[in-house]
Design a protein around this nucleic acid. Sequence first.
DNA 1: CGTGCATCTATACAATGTTCAGATTATCTG
DNA 2: CAGATAATCTGAACATTGTATAGATGCACG
Lengths: 198, 198
Amino acid sequence: MVPRVAVVSPYHHGDLESALVEAAIALVRKYGPDHLSLRAVSADVGVSPSASYHYFQDKNALISAVGSVLFARLADLQEEAISKISGSGMHSARERFQAMGNAYFKWAVTEPNLYRLLFGGFCEMQEVPQDHKAWRLLSEGLDELVQVGLITKSARQNGEALVWSAVHGASSLIIEGLMPRQAFPEVLKGIQRSLGMK
Amino acid sequence: MVPRVAVVSPYHHGDLESALVEAAIALVRKYGPDHLSLRAVSADVGVSPSASYHYFQDKNALISAVGSVLFARLADLQEEAISKISGSGMHSARERFQAMGNAYFKWAVTEPNLYRLLFGGFCEMQEVPQDHKAWRLLSEGLDELVQVGLITKSARQNGEALVWSAVHGASSLIIEGLMPRQAFPEVLKGIQRSLGMK
DNA sequence: CGTGCATCTATACAATGTTCAGATTATCTG
DNA sequence: CAGATAATCTGAACATTGTATAGATGCACG
């Protein structure tokens, strides 16, 4: 028997669930989604591998939890980028729209492993999140472009699909090395042409 | 010196390298890129797990080999779809262009696991060379649109980036369940608007 | 104070990637 | 055509992984 004195780390962690998620994010960030190990996550938190099964059914469940956290954070980054541009005219509306796309792309290239986990089929995201912040931001951004008269109402219709597809596609192809980084601004211009933006 | 034809010998396989690649493709197709097992691949071919290390440095090398095979096959499918549309007028040029995008998308939705392996960061791919069939088809398709007068020369500039980004992005988002299938035709329309296509 | 319950540990098991020594066969040399 | 040499494959081994099960631990509450 080991003499048991005052233990530094308590038996009950207190907030193990989110601690596991954060540790998983850190490990995916470093080594990629396919090299995420439940045991390494648990060890980083200072807990036995079995402990995580109290909060997540299996490894996939943890990954899915990571996915929704990351998706929310990406939306936060976009919102932050938008909020830095004030004004209500045509100029600032366009800049806000571009800032949204740039924030998305910037996150992809600075955190390719997190991006892969989020959009690479690792986490099961079943529903089309119409009320998700990311979708709301895009939708409201398009609405603003209509309101300030930069695009027509008919060009705006279903604009979300084209915009998200092009921005996501370019980000994905670029971080996988299939396209040069310099292509992204061109894609942004193409999106605006597609919307008939002046 | 050249390895000879496949004489059915229990010990020497004859064409193990490509047999491993084909078996890997079949397994990825079924179970996804992250559940590909070297041992299962070897077992399917009827060979010891160690045998594959004579042809591939490690699991990643096999996956990368699978990747370039798949990329070539995707291009073949696109070429086949294009070749089914004859004629040299504006109408057939547009149809060929659309057929290319549709073939890409169709492959993505019918083989999501292969698509994920190819574009999900599993295989280390270098920047797609200008002389790759997939790039050539896209490039020539855009050139044809200019030649028949469907788009202007200036709108065509760097059109590859926007087209590939949008088609790839839509395919990716749709197979991951983030976008409804029905959004793809809208994206195709958006691409044509972006090119100023009549 | 002690009883119940949520939380965490220990142990075990099968599967995986990978290495290495050796067995088996094909090919070449004399 | 025989024997040597190189190419190809096997077998066993090791560390690491996800996960299941049984038991230990400590908190809240009677």
